[in-house]
Nucleic acid binder design. Sequence first.
DNA 1: ATGAAAGCGCTAACAT
DNA 2: ATGTTAGCGCTTTCAT
Lengths: 355, 355
Amino acid sequence: MTPASNTPSEPGSQPKGRASIYDVAAHAGVSAQTVSRVANGQTNVRPTTRDRVLESIQALGYRPNSAARNLKSGKFRSIGFVTFNLATLGNEQTLNAVAEASEKAGYTTTLLPVTDPTKLDVAGAFSRLEEQAVDGIILVMSAEVGSLDELKVTLGLPLVIVDSDAMLPYTIVDTDQEQGSGLAVRHLLDLGHRDIVHVSGPEISFSARRRAETYRTTMAEAGLEARPVLVGDWSAQSALALTRELFADGPPPTAVFAGNDQMALGVIHAIRERGLRVPEDVSVVGFDDAEEAAVSWPALTTVHQNFDQVGRNATSLLLSLIDGAPDTRRKVLIPTHLVVRDSTGPVRSGPVPSA
Amino acid sequence: MTPASNTPSEPGSQPKGRASIYDVAAHAGVSAQTVSRVANGQTNVRPTTRDRVLESIQALGYRPNSAARNLKSGKFRSIGFVTFNLATLGNEQTLNAVAEASEKAGYTTTLLPVTDPTKLDVAGAFSRLEEQAVDGIILVMSAEVGSLDELKVTLGLPLVIVDSDAMLPYTIVDTDQEQGSGLAVRHLLDLGHRDIVHVSGPEISFSARRRAETYRTTMAEAGLEARPVLVGDWSAQSALALTRELFADGPPPTAVFAGNDQMALGVIHAIRERGLRVPEDVSVVGFDDAEEAAVSWPALTTVHQNFDQVGRNATSLLLSLIDGAPDTRRKVLIPTHLVVRDSTGPVRSGPVPSA
DNA sequence: ATGAAAGCGCTAACAT
DNA sequence: ATGTTAGCGCTTTCAT
């Protein structure tokens, strides 16, 4: 059946390395072009020929070489995901959403870890990103990066920034920190709390600073005095230590707004150590709505952050940039919503909401 | 200074697209070879020439095109990370470790998400992996995949499997599930518990099955009768529901071994709902040692799983395979250790350990 | 120390 | 419907 004409390279032997398009062409007795057409599902190939080529592809285990394709097309069909630490609920979920969204668009996601944020001097590490086999970059900052302004100059690749200072002159997608934090603080206010403490993430984090700011302004709007912000590092451990100190220093507040759920757990732990109850003695609100929030004891009231939407938006924005859309430097803010569970309740004694 | 001789393509205008090695060569008045040598840090270039080339590289913002490099070298310097869901503590931490380890080796990590595990029929999806621009693949299963045997036949790429049935004929890296589960169950046994329930992950998961098996054998070794395993899906919610049912159906056990920390939290939640205390009435052990384990209330006794080591080992194994080492199909089992915190204690009333 | 030529595997453009 | 030519950007010979 198959006209297995002998070629000098002995096609009958087992395949060394990988079969190229020429091997298939020789095996099927057609030109490389025809193989290419079959491999790419072009229509203008006679069914007989197509079948023969398909057989040869099978027989030789041929797979197109993506490097050659990339070289030819000038595209990689891959987007780069740059982050300083993956070990964060938000970053991880964002990555997950990005990976799924880009896969749907036929793109692959390449991780470009930058071990040390401060090492990200623009001249050095960043320009190296251009060599990577990616068509565009999603930069998840979650922390400050020096001289970002030069980025635009240095980086010759489409760029979308996630979780960042929305003042930056780039296309940005982020959770609406202000809206979310307002929700949390006003919830406590509505429950009658007047003495509310905020335990925040690290200074270096934009979102942490934004949440702390909103805590202060919302308190001010209510005509209340904000307590000094307790600055942690997102970890439950840091919140635990901070809250212990707080209790050691003076009377406990009636409510705590924690910068994330992890820290909320740490706060709750410290409250219990002190012999107090949640929410009867102290109410606690978190931020993120991580999986454990629903099953902690008590179930945590928290601000739900929609990382999936952040990731999907960032991806589609980047993809359109890659497709040549002009960079309009849009800021997309993804709204949050409050999930009220059992860690918050009305103040036990003291002023009741005006009603 | 610079002999900016005019070429037909008007090099003086702003760079359309990207500067190639030829543009730099023309700009510096040397051959492409010399540029290549400078770019790759070869020594045999006269300092004067080198400087001139370097200047041109700067001026034109030249970055080597990785597609061309890849095509030439036949390597991508990237490893593929295949998983069915990233949204798992273990997978995420493993990915993190893989990304870091491969970055250190000068490799990039490419995410190859497979949305539906059951869709991973070998003939289809898997052979497509070969087209990806990767030199090898780390497959994180955490669940069963049909006809894996054909994998070897189909996949022409170095492969390391993580978190899997260690019986498979591949190079495998995994947490030592047996050792870990033994630690957990024997810890409860040592505390005098005799009535221990196991809440497991889903049947489809190898590690879940392995942990359940070890629970049964360890109980048997102690001459005790195992309770029917409560099969959940790793989520706290599932454990919560399962434990509620358990309590509704009969007398509570004195201890629970949960298949992971999330489920342990769900179990604890259910115990409390029932008006019982942890660990006074019921002891609970988890598995993973996730961050929240240390700060949950009470702090969770759990089996620490070293995902970092799993990821690092998988990476170095894969890298050596890529470098041409023969596939010896080693099984590397990473040991765990027990972290005793506050969720376990001696049985209140009942048999005391023989001593 | 430097350059010229060839080719990695693929596909767009142009024949036939 | 199929084949031929050329070239993507780089690096490995092999000169010089």
